[in-house]
Design a protein around this nucleic acid. Structure first.
Lengths: 193, 193
DNA sequence: CAAAAACTACCAACTAGTAGGTAAGGAACC
DNA sequence: GGTTCCTTACCTACTAGTTGGTAGTTTTTG
């Protein structure tokens, strides 16, 4: 019986918003307390240290990604459709500003300054995502549903990098549309003629 | 008569190192003071506020990029060689850990939390780099020295995004080699057969 | 000398984190 | 049914240390 609006999750939700906009050092217990409507000390009850909070946050984020990707895979079987859906998810998140950046992409950029237990979670996210993309692309290649020009693993790493770089550009320019602009040719290249 | 080891530049140099590892909120005047060997207050003599320091830092970074790209362009005329040199520059920086990340790519990720005057500089860096890449690719296309599959501007944005995303992946995995792994097919695709 | 660049000595605000207390809700026991 | 006991979740009040920034003074230097 998980409560939809329990304090634990509300803390993680507001921390996620804050972290997405300013990174690990860009939020404080005081910030979260103000948003959630409790006192600073009460956050320590749920998350003894800031590193605990961030670790839990990234772990939840990663778990959601794992189930999310699995769900997409159960809905579509065409590999190109899978990649399009993944890219489309972010295009929408960035477009409507509901989730304008990937938590793990942001944290990866400041990885050397992160508590080790958080860094481990971030790395695991990258590994899972790249693994998923590799398997999709590999299958697409075998089925002839995708045209690849280098090993599936490399194609997958390049695709993931393009997605993250496109996020960065969209944020830098302040124009969400540039994300789709960049992704379009990447997807086009994989389409069989 | 610019002094090679004046305090002003030393402050910027150490700030750059610190910012590259932990972002805008990942460094403090105290950190810089410890590295440079002066007192905190002396930094305020050169840079009244932290935003001033960061703005000056990114402005210098951007100016170096502008002259650096112009220099590369005066050494090579082949468009593909130019792109390879740019990518190779970062491959080396990441490989020998001398400059493991682009200051502006990092700051772009936390753009919403940046002082506006810093954000402006970051945006200008992106615009210049993407403009340079566009002109190189456009020329390559006209000369037949490059094979492009979408408008030069789009190709340029995609190339820049790939570079930044590859940086992120190299940092996330902790393996510099992944940067070159990702860039290689991007360059290969542009090569005429 | 005068300007530049450093210094000492502060400050208020904020940082993560701690100590100790209170109120509410069950479960266990008689 | 009432009492005891433990747990959860919050609170107030505090700590030690850090943050960016200021005022005023001394040293260095062209």
């Amino acid at each position: 019986m998980s409560n939809l609006s329990n304090t634990y999750d509300e803390i993680l939700n507001s921390a996620e918003k804050l972290i997405v906009s300013g990174g690990y050092n860009g939020f404080s217990y005081a910030d979260i307390a103000a948003v959630v409507g409790i006192r600073k000390a009460s956050i320590h009850h749920h998350f003894p240290s800031k590193a605990d909070l961030a670790r839990a946050l990234v772990a939840r984020y990663r778990a959601n990604a794992v189930t999310g990707l699995a769900e997409v895979e159960s809905k579509f079987s065409d590999p190109l459709e899978l990649l399009k859906t993944y890219a489309g998810f972010w295009a929408q998140c960035i477009g409507d500003a509901s989730r304008p950046f990937c938590v793990c992409a942001l944290l990866a950029s400041e990885l050397p300054a992160l508590p080790p237990e958080v860094a481990v979670e971030v790395r695991a996210y990258f590994q899972h995502l790249s693994g998923w993309l590799t398997s999709v692309i590999e299958r697409g290649d075998q089925q002839g549903a995708l045209v690849i020009s280098c090993p599936a693993r490399v194609e997958a790493e390049a695709f993931m990098a393009t997605v993250h770089g496109a996020m960065l550009s969209a944020r830098a320019y302040g124009t969400p549309a540039v994300f789709e602009l960049i992704l379009e040719p990447s997807l086009q290249r994989l389409r069989p003629r």
